Amino acid sequence: MYLGKHMPVWLDTANGTNFPHLEDEVEVDVVIVGGGIAGLSAATSLKMEGLSIAILESKRISNYITGATTAKIAVTSNLIYNYIFTNFGKEFALKFKEAYFSAFNKIPKIIDKLNIDCDYRRVPLYIFSSDEDSFDNLKSELDVLKELDIDAKIIHDLSYPFENINNGLLYEDQAEFHPKKYLNGLADFINGDGSYIFEKTKVLAIEENENILAIGEKGIFKTNENERNKNLNNDFKKNNDNKMKTIVTERGNLKAKNVLIATNSPIYDPDNLYKFLSQNKSYLLGVYTKSKFPQGMFVDHSPFHSYRSTSTEKGELVIIGGEHHLLEILKIHGIILTTLETSQKNLWM
């Protein structure tokens, strides 16, 4: 087993971006704050509808949260539907399913339409557990999947190196891709013809009629009297007034009637969602193995580890993720990586 480089493989195997920062005042239909997969996907859809777009990214697009994922495209990421069904009911679970399936089906259509070469391929997804007592969890998930009309089935034999796992859920015809190559393709489509991508351009405030709706990175709300104007915020949230807004950045201003916040944590938060948010950190390990990795994506539900592979110049790289924890909890990263490495040596060797 050989360790890979100390950087995400997606950033190491795709071209970086070098879009300009904002210099002159620009007016567009929609300003999108945040240049990850959420912001770029929204911009692509809106531009396809004929709207002019400006994306504002404080650093470089698609290099951070998006650039360090395991890049699975699937109708689920874990045993989640039973939890949602049990806690929020069938109607909400169906809406959750609709959102997942909508994104799942839209990505390949965009890839085909824009002719993006991003290593997209259809593969199965396996969700299993190293805990032998977890079969009831798999069965409960499957029962809900049937209720929601989602195709999956229980299997009792997995391929190397998971051949000692007795039970798992199989989702056939899922997908994986190279996220950085995909987002580079979206960026090429978005930029131009009256739409823009501005990197190294940090948003400082969003103003409407001299009232500051949002400022800074922590969703602090003020008006010109240094108070929160609830009616104004509600109008902005519902977007019924269609008034021109000024997006203030450290390099100049933009004007737009619509602003979409697509940052990891929202800079505009009228519903105080921050109190429900928590930041988590997880770790990825890239390894070259002597034996061929089976085709597919694999998720160990308990303890949580994620597996998939991708082709590199040196051969097939297996990407392993896990050991996540709350960011506020002090962890010694070297120890965690050693723990992840040790667990994988026991699996692969």
Results as ranks from 00 to 15, higher is better:
residue 177 F to V: 05
residue 179 P to L: 10
residue 180 K to R: 15
residue 181 K to Y: 02
residue 183 L to W: 00
residue 184 N to M: 11
residue 189 F to R: 03
residue 189 F to C: 02
residue 189 F to H: 01
residue 191 N to E: 10
residue 191 N to G: 02
residue 193 D to M: 04
residue 195 S to N: 01
residue 198 F to W: 03
residue 198 F to M: 02
residue 201 T to Y: 14
residue 201 T to E: 08
residue 204 L to T: 07
residue 204 L to W: 04
residue 205 A to I: 04
residue 207 E to V: 15
residue 208 E to T: 02
residue 208 E to A: 03
residue 209 N to T: 05
residue 212 I to G: 05
residue 213 L to V: 01
residue 215 I to F: 05
residue 217 E to P: 06
residue 218 K to H: 06
residue 219 G to H: 09
residue 220 I to E: 01
residue 220 I to T: 08
residue 220 I to N: 02
residue 221 F to P: 03
residue 223 T to F: 00
residue 225 E to F: 15
residue 226 N to A: 10
residue 227 E to M: 06
residue 227 E to I: 14
residue 229 N to D: 10
residue 229 N to G: 11
residue 231 N to T: 09
residue 232 L to H: 03
residue 232 L to N: 07
residue 232 L to C: 00
residue 233 N to L: 15
residue 233 N to A: 08
residue 234 N to K: 12
residue 235 D to P: 10
residue 235 D to E: 14
residue 236 F to L: 08
residue 236 F to W: 07
residue 236 F to I: 14
residue 238 K to Q: 11
residue 239 N to C: 12
residue 239 N to R: 14
residue 240 N to E: 06
residue 241 D to Y: 00
residue 241 D to L: 13
residue 244 M to S: 10
residue 247 I to M: 06
residue 247 I to N: 04
residue 251 R to S: 11
residue 252 G to W: 13
residue 252 G to F: 12
residue 255 K to G: 04
residue 255 K to C: 05
residue 255 K to W: 03
residue 258 N to M: 14
residue 258 N to S: 14
residue 259 V to K: 03
residue 261 I to D: 02
residue 262 A to G: 13
residue 262 A to Y: 09
residue 263 T to P: 04
residue 263 T to I: 10
residue 263 T to D: 04
residue 266 P to T: 12
residue 266 P to M: 08
residue 266 P to A: 07
residue 268 Y to N: 03
residue 268 Y to D: 07
residue 268 Y to W: 12
residue 272 N to R: 09
residue 275 K to M: 00
residue 275 K to H: 01
residue 277 L to E: 00
residue 277 L to I: 05
residue 281 K to Y: 02
residue 282 S to M: 03
residue 282 S to V: 01
residue 283 Y to W: 09
residue 283 Y to S: 04
residue 286 G to S: 07
residue 286 G to L: 05
residue 288 Y to A: 09
residue 288 Y to S: 12
residue 289 T to W: 08
residue 290 K to F: 06
residue 291 S to P: 07
residue 291 S to G: 07
residue 292 K to Q: 10
residue 292 K to A: 13
residue 293 F to P: 13
residue 295 Q to A: 13
residue 296 G to M: 09
residue 299 V to P: 01
residue 299 V to K: 00
residue 299 V to N: 01
residue 299 V to Y: 00
residue 300 D to H: 10
residue 302 S to I: 09
residue 303 P to I: 10
residue 304 F to P: 12
residue 305 H to P: 02
residue 305 H to C: 09
residue 305 H to I: 01
residue 306 S to R: 05
residue 306 S to F: 13
residue 307 Y to K: 02
residue 308 R to E: 01
residue 309 S to C: 12
residue 312 T to Q: 10
residue 312 T to P: 08
residue 313 E to S: 12
residue 314 K to A: 07
residue 315 G to A: 07
